[in-house]
Design a protein around this nucleic acid. Structure first.
Length: 196
DNA sequence: CAATCGATGATCT
DNA sequence: GATCATCGATTGG
């Protein structure tokens, strides 16, 4: 997907870095599923063993194994028994990690999203809502974001100036002070609890 | 507005 | 058996 190269040799993949570094860089990227596309406007970094709020904090388990898997793949988990949430797996070697995609702006397939959400507003301004908008399925956990049902692509066209805000993550009870949430301060579609 | 609460089931201890 | 990386409806000011 996105790679740095020196002398034609692959050195480090865009996703082979700490989630804390990758997270803000994912703002503005496009997530697509079929005819639906979203522009990412809010993300949170979840680290490995050193992050008490991360699913990976307890060590490798069946649920979090995708966080240790190939980078640039998806990590999908069931939240509160009813919402599927989407992450981009990224980490350094031997060190699980992922970026939770918390909100997006619908850029294509709005009618499909409206049908899936059963409403015209608040289409993807929250991780559970975004999961619905994308029509996530649990069986997609761990799949490639290049060849799988959900595709992730860098911003298309000229990149206009971006205003990135940073603050504490939401909805967690541990490490509540760590400023690992990033969002586009220009977006009206960040999750409700993220607005400043 | 804000604050509270029920739904709902997998996951881990 | 307790805890959730949430949402939407409802309640109360």
């Amino acid at each position: 997907m996105v790679r740095s190269e020196i002398g034609g040799q692959r050195t480090i993949d865009f996703f082979d870095r700490s989630p804390e570094v990758v997270a803000p860089e994912l703002l503005g990227w496009q997530l697509s599923q079929g005819d639906v596309s979203l522009a990412i406007v809010e993300v949170e970094a979840y680290l490995g063993a050193e992050d008490p709020a991360s699913h990976a904090f307890v060590g490798r388990t069946p649920r979090n194994q995708a966080m240790s898997g190939p980078t640039g793949h998806g990590y999908i988990y069931l939240s509160y028994g009813m919402h599927l949430c989407f992450n981009v797996v990224c980490h350094r070697p031997d060190q699980p990690g992922a970026v939770l995609i918390r909100a997006g702006e619908v850029t294509a397939g709005r009618a499909i999203v409206v049908a899936r959400r059963g409403r015209e507003d608040n289409l993807a301004n929250g991780p559970g809502r975004l999961g619905q908008a994308l029509g996530l399925e649990r069986s997609w956990n761990g799949l490639s974001l290049t060849t799988g049902p959900v595709q992730l692509e860098p911003p298309v066209g000229p990149v206009h100036p971006i205003q990135i805000a940073r603050g504490p993550r939401v909805g967690i009870s541990k490490a509540i002070e760590a400023p690992l949430r990033f969002w586009l301060s220009t977006s009206t579609q960040v999750s409700k609890r993220s607005q400043r």
